[in-house]
Design a protein around this nucleic acid. Structure first.
Lengths: 176, 176
DNA sequence: ACTCCATGGTTCGGTGATTGAACTTAGGGG
DNA sequence: CCCCTAAGTTCAATCACCGAACCATGGAGT
């Protein structure tokens, strides 16, 4: 999208959001963060994103406060990138866009199902739980699972880990 | 974003959505369509978008079925681009991203307020009406208005037309 | 008939972002 | 000492985007 080259004339909240998360790859990185994919190498493997672009996006998002870089082991020192509260508040946008893509651009229907973890009910169009009512289900309480088998040609570690049911925001490998 | 160069490996609804609406400017064009800005020249004036890019986006979105090109006068022949049902279903995504940008990236708070036209209540985070309940308010029933005076340096015709309260999806100039 | 104007584009050279591949750095492990 | 992994950086080639200028069509004014 742009560094220096922004949607400057627009006094508009959407334009500002897009300056930050509207660049190529950025929302896919954020989606993977919701899926619990938080490490550089896992992101490269799962997204097939050029490493230089990933570095740039992680830096930008960290500087903006959407992601936080966090040490998860000391020896050797390794960091992961986790969503901040600001980042987690992108869930409705990510969900809405995913749903739209699943309904209108996926010949076989949506690739994943999202449910309210407490009651197992599929989320409604707005991201709420039809059974439990009262508005948006926070991403921590959302479960997701693939609706069809993982594609043959994507057999990396990360895709395999995501081939079963999971909870959003739970890191792929729980570190003990 | 890419023509030919897509997020090919991703068996993912979000990736497919972004291939189409994730390119630079695209979501701003769609937002303007929700605002009722539907003509080439109005879009150029309001967004300050390069004309070649606008042509490309309008073509792509029309071919994908998000916009429909419609004749609104015969002499001289003039067309406008209006949202299809598929396009209108992007409202939750546009609203969610706008809201996020308004809350986290706009120092003076959101630039516009969105209300349920029937009852005047501000929409909730999910795009529903807290008073009337039952889920998402369809864009036809959403009213919007600026929350602060239009910026001095944006005094084009379109910005002036959008400086008062309006309904989503109502064309800027009703043709009689 | 001739000129001017508005709308809705297209063309084009220059600039900046993205890409894939190769290289680097830092820390273990055998 | 050599090899391995994670996490980057560098670089040349390509692609998309930019702004400015140009073009086409169909009135309207004189």
């Amino acid at each position: 999208m742009a560094l220096g080259k922004d949607y400057e004339g627009q006094d508009c909240a959407l334009a500002r959001a897009l300056e930050l998360v509207g660049e190529r790859w950025t929302l896919l990185v954020i989606r993977d963060a919701f899926y619990g994919v938080t490490r550089y190498s896992d992101l490269v493997a799962h997204l097939d994103i050029p490493r230089a672009v990933l570095s740039d996006r992680l830096q930008t998002l960290t500087a903006a406060g959407v992601l936080e870089r966090r040490r998860y082991q000391d020896s050797p020192p390794r960091d992961e990138y986790v969503l901040t509260e600001m980042g987690r508040e992108l869930w409705p946008a990510v969900y809405a866009l995913s749903r739209w893509g699943g309904r209108h651009l996926s010949p076989d229907g949506p690739s994943r199902a999202y449910t309210h973890a407490e009651c197992g009910t599929r989320l409604d169009p707005a991201g709420g739980c039809p059974r439990c009512g009262n508005g948006l289900v926070p991403p921590e309480d959302v479960a997701f699972r693939p609706m069809r088998p993982t594609r043959e040609d994507r057999s990396d570690q990360v895709s395999r880990a995501l081939s079963g049911p999971r909870r959003l925001l739970r890191p792929l490998a729980e570190v003990d």
